[in-house]
């Protein structure tokens, strides 16, 4: 996953033309003709299959290519009833199926052809490739990547923080790994939806989610790893975020808005504004932080379901 200078759509496509092969984009259902086929018959085939050209095979070997342009010329010059063999293009540029798509893009730019016959390692025709095929393949691949991310996210949300119920209380526990930005926000999303399912006021659920999210990212950014535990009781949610170190030297300073020790890398991702702990404090009805350098930090947050505390800056 790209973290910084995030890849835009173009550079993803750019990367894809190197990783995808010609065989991934080519059409495999081929319409072919022989040198003996008449241009009139080819005209019919092109119309029937809505294609603009077709390879010419003789004894399974590629001997030429005939295109819509050849047909137009034949109609113009009155040789439409003649056979393909005489009028086809004989010097055919082919491309190997195991080449990266990047190579095909290069070929299309260099030769200005509408289509490239694709051959296997033995030189036998196995497909045909147009520029439209490349575009379609790239779009499908981009969609697939998004769908894959959506599926992974849904799975993460479903699996994270297996809940245990004891009486009216529900406990959820999430382990949070150092540097694991991919999973930042999973615990808060789960906790938020658990609260909403219980009919907890949306603003209260949001405050719990914000506090959890800031706590999660703190562990990811600053610690060597830890966990977030949430206990949902009838009247409140208690969030405990604990890590194994290195601990905070000066807790009072860390609570000051704007103070941050986050790296440039982390700041470039939009974190490290020095608002994490102040935000958590603002969302909490009760807030406690204990930290011992070398041992770790423990954060305790309680939010009452009937509380009127606002997370608002307005």
């Amino acid at each position: 996953m790209s973290v910084i200078g995030a890849a835009n759509g173009f550079s993803v496509a750019h990367e894809l033309v190197y990783t995808l092969k010609v065989r991934d984009a080519m059409q495999k259902d081929l319409v072919t003709v022989t040198p003996g086929t008449t241009l009139r018959e080819v005209q019919g085939l092109l119309r029937e299959h809505r294609i603009s050209g077709t390879p010419v095979l003789e004894n399974d070997l590629l001997v030429g290519i005939v295109s819509l342009e050849d047909i137009i010329n034949a109609l113009d010059h009155g040789h439409i009833e003649e056979s393909v063999g005489r009028w086809m293009t004989r010097e055919v540029v082919t491309i190997q199926e195991n080449m990266p798509l990047r190579r095909a893009v290069e070929f299309f730019q260099r030769y200005q052809y509408g289509r490239l016959p694709v051959v296997d390692a033995e030189g036998r025709l196995c497909g045909i490739l147009t520029q439209a095929d490349i575009v379609v393949r790239l779009m499908l691949e981009l969609n697939r990547m998004a769908e894959e991310a959506a599926r992974r996210e849904t799975e993460l949300l479903a699996q994270a923080g297996a809940a245990t119920t004891s009486g009216p209380a529900v406990t959820m526990e999430f382990s949070v790994n150092a540097g694991d930005f991919d999973n930042a926000g999973i615990a808060s999303a789960r906790i938020k939806s658990a609260l909403q399912e219980r009919g907890v006021d949306l603003k209260v659920a949001r405050r719990a989610a914000i506090a959890t999210y800031e706590a999660e990212t703190n562990i990811i950014i600053h610690s060597i790893g830890g966990s977030v535990k949430a206990q949902i009781d009838a009247d409140r949610i208690t969030i405990e975020a604990a890590d194994w170190g290195p601990g905070i030297e000066d807790v009072e300073r860390a609570l000051r808005p704007g103070f941050s020790t986050a790296s440039e890398l982390v700041r470039a991702m939009g974190f490290g504004a020095g608002m994490g702990l102040p935000n958590i404090q603002k969302c909490a009805d009760r807030f406690r932080i204990e930290s011992t350098p070398g041992t770790g930090t423990r954060l305790h947050v309680e939010i009452d379901f009937d509380s009127t505390t606002s997370d608002g800056g307005e």
Binding site: M1, F181, K192, G313
Partner: peptide
Amino acid sequence: LATGKDEFVILTGLVSPQVIRTAQV
């Protein structure tokens, strides 16, 4: 995260998956 608004949209120049998670939160 600190805005505390309701019925709002996010405008940002930040391109990161965390923008989506933040919006969700």
